[in-house]
Design a protein around this nucleic acid. Structure first.
Lengths: 142, 142
DNA sequence: TTCATAATGTAGCCAGTACTACAATTTGGA
DNA sequence: TCCAAATTGTAGTACTGGCTACATTATGAA
């Protein structure tokens, strides 16, 4: 009697900027990084990193649970599901490509990292491919 | 006894992705374009272009009025204030640079235009400058 | 072991951005 | 001129993502 997870695309009507997708990606990416670096992901740490209160994080985690991206028990740390890990990995790759690309254009590191946070959610397959191609071109000729 | 317009930055707390800013820019950019092309901007046309209902547009226009970006009278068309025109012009320039840049990278026109919609809101001064520089470099050597 | 503090959760509020349903105003054609 | 259709507005609802205030649970130091 498992309930199927609520798809994170709640409003199929809305074609534009599904912002909750972006939030989901930011969260799973950050959770994955925390687990990798410190062994666990806690609400309080996410809150500090995101500069929001723990309440906001707590509520978002509930939503991500419904979406089947994370698992969490009360007062315990947060884990990624298989789907969550997959999304985190995709997001990370995308993020890194964007940062590298911007850096290769001569954008200062601080700006490159800051911009990547926003840009990574709006880069299509085609544009990402163009970034990769450009990187290959500028890196190859040593 | 003029009330000062509500600044569009309502939540100074929130450092991240102020989405209402993006909406404001999208709207004034579109309104400017409509006025340029057809002589006036109507709620119904904005709704069709944005693929939302007229209600959503109507409410957003109210917010933009409070923010001092547009003026509008009931059942009449929408006008930009000086601030609105300025924001529209900045947004348009930014948008065009992003489209040109992506195109110069070999991104197909459709994807370039679609991506620019999202990207333009997350491109810092530094990155925009890097785009311009790259364009100059690739265009110059005819 | 106990208890203060840190972490987490819950309730309730607000604004933005969606929606449907219905009311009011404009407008063009008969 | 008048009326039906198009446009715009209003009421009420839902969800996301912020917040504060307060309640509950875990945890480490005495």
């Amino acid at each position: 009697m498992q309930r199927r997870p609520t798809p994170i695309t709640v409003n199929p009507r809305r074609a534009r900027a599904d912002h909750s997708h972006e939030t989901a990606q930011d969260y799973v990416e950050m959770i994955a990084e925390m687990i990798r670096k410190t062994g666990e992901a806690r609400v309080i740490d996410l809150a500090r990193r995101l500069k929001v209160t723990h309440v906001t994080v707590s509520r978002t985690i509930q939503r991500l649970q419904r979406a089947g991206l994370v698992t969490a028990l009360p007062y315990r740390s947060i884990f990624l599901t298989e789907a969550g890990r997959k999304l985190a990995e995709e997001s990370r790759r995308r993020h890194e490509i964007v940062v590298e690309f911007l850096t290769s254009l001569g954008v200062p590191a601080a700006a490159a990292h800051a911009d990547a946070e926003g840009l990574e959610h709006h880069v299509s397959k085609e544009t990402l491919a163009a970034f990769v191609k450009h990187l290959a071109k500028t890196n190859r000729p040593k």
